[in-house]
Design a binder for these strands. Structure first.
Lengths: 245, 245
DNA sequence: CAGTGGTCTAGACCACGCT
DNA sequence: GCGTGGTCTAGACCACTGT
């Protein structure tokens, strides 16, 4: 099966072999691949070569390795779809809003230059910083850091940093402060997780991330800036409706 | 600098060291990292350990390795922003539409079950399949496969599979056939490139992709289904405007 | 305790880019 | 020709998970 004289590196040939069995369904989601020792013996390869092949599949997102347990075909996780409808002011439809539990840490901070530009305020303006982690069935779902000018929240319960999560999301929270969000701009990127994100979001190495920069507007005024909302690519997808004019 | 007795693996410590110098600016975009031999000698490590550290940084998207040349801090490529405005029927604003050159292959095919469902037609319905590769300054920018029911294009130049790219994009092409696109739905995912995509899009391994499934509507009718539009995560970002109602 | 993947070393040869 | 990263082997010890 594997040709040591081929131009194609041996570890790639082994990866091709295993990949074909995975996409062909011979190894289904959750199944264990043969152990490294078994692959060494079956194909007459050194262990590092086998490990290189497995590493390639891991980078492609096809398998995960678990120490002392084995190498497993990646489970198709239930993907959560985040629709642009989630910004409706009207009551959230089931399944479209925040369905899980959230942990949030609020803090009062002065605007740093980058945030100030996004919010269109002067650097140093007092802001409420909100760091939130959304959990769904115990699995971290998204991580976000966002800012609201404190002035907008003055005199409302949201101005208190000790306050917990905002039920109903940011649009509802701002509505509670008399701020009517009229539009949202999102810029979506794909990037690899930073080392600390692999921990806090509990993602396997090699899992790409959706990174969203969100800006909320009330008319011409910017009322919220989410510097980055990070969603593991194997757990979420984003849905947008665009009206063509 | 590196503690062999630490709990943290040596290769991770080396990766931490190099990462700190990259994000700290000591190695700027395009700069070469020290060679593997240099890192071996400087830190008293085996070559595979050094290579493991570099591989980690490559997976994180921080560096690219080029055979016989060296390891380089990844260039911040000019990122092309794809705005939801690109679907306007009005003349495209500069920089928002398709600015580069496109290669397209058109073919007449019967609808397979998955596409039929997305298009809401019967399986086997004759479709025009369009495979397009968008280039920008010689660099592949996006790859897409999309389908339009042939019936919609009957009697127009677009029905001819031998015809080349559609200037002005799909909305303009459909307008030319008398089909007025009113809305677009996009579902965005992040995933790693498939092996053949690393070639056709010329991306470094470890570059995450934005994968978009697009559905175009004329009223209630589905007039185009793009099964997948793939954009390298280091070359593109998506911008969406959402009106909050 | 046996088996798994994780880490690490030492050494070999190769393909390629530069000068 | 020399230096670079790419591939591959053989062997060692470790940490962790199962029984």
């Amino acid at each position: 099966m594997i040709d040591a004289l081929s131009d194609r590196p041996v570890y790639r040939q082994l990866a091709d072999l295993l990949r074909a069995k995975i996409v062909g369904g011979e190894y289904g989601p959750g199944d264990a691949l043969p152990s490294e020792i078994a692959l060494m013996e079956r194909h007459g390869l050194g262990r590092n070569t086998v490990r290189q092949a497995v590493a390639l599949l891991r980078e492609e997102g096809l398998v995960v390795t678990r120490q002392a347990r084995g190498t497993f075909v990646r489970d198709a996780l239930p993907v959560r779809r985040l629709s642009s409808d989630r910004y409706r002011r009207a009551p959230q439809r089931r399944g479209s809003g925040a369905g899980g539990t959230a942990e949030a840490i609020h803090r009062e901070v002065p605007a740093d230059p980058a945030v100030a530009e996004q919010l269109r305020v002067a650097a140093g303006t007092p802001l409420l910083e909100r760091r939130a982690l959304l959990l769904e069935r115990g699995l971290p779902q998204q991580l976000s850091v966002s800012y609201v000018p404190l002035e907008l929240l003055a005199g409302t319960p949201m101005a208190d940093p000790a306050r917990g999560p905002w039920p109903g999301g940011t649009v509802a929270a701002l509505a509670g402060a008399g701020v009517r969000v009229t539009a949202v701009r999102e810029v979506v990127r794909a990037r690899m997780p930073r080392p600390e994100e692999t921990r806090s979001l509990a993602v396997a190495v090699g899992t790409p991330m959706l990174a969203i920069t969100r800006t909320m507007f009330a008319g011409e005024r910017v009322v919220e800036a989410a510097v980055e909302i990070v969603v593991p690519g194997d757990r979420g997808e984003l849905e947008y409706h665009v009206d063509v004019r």
